[in-house]
Amino acid sequence: MTQGKTGTELAEPPKKPVTVSINGNAYRADEGECLLTVAERVKIPIPHFCFEQSLEPYGACRLCMVGVVHHGKTVMETACTLRAKEGLTVLTDTPDIVKYRTILFELYLAEAPKSAVVKEMAARYGVTKTRFLRRVDTGDPLGGACILCGLCVRVCNEIMGAGAINFINRGPYTVVNTPFTEPSRDCYGCGACAAVCPTHAVSLEDRGGERILHSWSETKVPLSQCVSCGKYFAPAALEKSVLSRIEPPLRDDLEGLCPACRAKKLAKKEILAATGGDPGDA
């Protein structure tokens, strides 16, 4: 399968304006811009699961497949790894693409039979049934909604640097979870995994002074309590790591405060400073 260009070449996309054609209409784009982003901007729907702004596209879900017209021939490429260049011509709904997409949706319906997101999206493209064997696992900590796109794994490793979860096993037995399916010691409890999951498969909950990551072997992390209002507001380990990156005077001001109290305190300080009042115990 033809893949888009790799990350190294695209590290610094030049901002040269180019014209690309999607379904016969011309659109402006920046040279090197991700074609999926261009299509989204001009409201041309291309279904996709594994595209996430904060990560380098990696074409894992294959759903964003489009036809690229080149010298009269059309080849299929994933839109998320495709980069805009002058004269780029793509079609989003050729019979080939429609056929390909239908099979993929059927596969996803079998892989994640409990996912409302998958069902809804598939139905939008006219796919409501699957010819493939559904994956049924009643005890699945991801509730039968995981499509194994790997976004949670990547965000946990590449962005947060926690590396608490990863793929386990192989083939039809592949799952995402913590090693030994035991509570993780590496997890910050940041919840980035849940935020990026395209099928909302990751389940977590704040209860009392703890965040419980149900999907990740019931990993529990303590939450920090706001010294001012008493609300639990962030995983303690995460707060510590964020604070360590702030310079001391400001850090001392912010330590132990939830975002709301932080804003109040800073605003009060500003006002007092402007009016010449004494910040005192602000």
């Binding site: 490793n157 590396g163 979860i165 990863n166 793929f167 386990i168 090693p179 030994f180 993780s184």
Partner: peptide, 8 residues
Amino acid sequence: VRISQLYS
């Protein structure tokens, strides 16, 4: 190397 990676 993270234990999650080795386990994987």
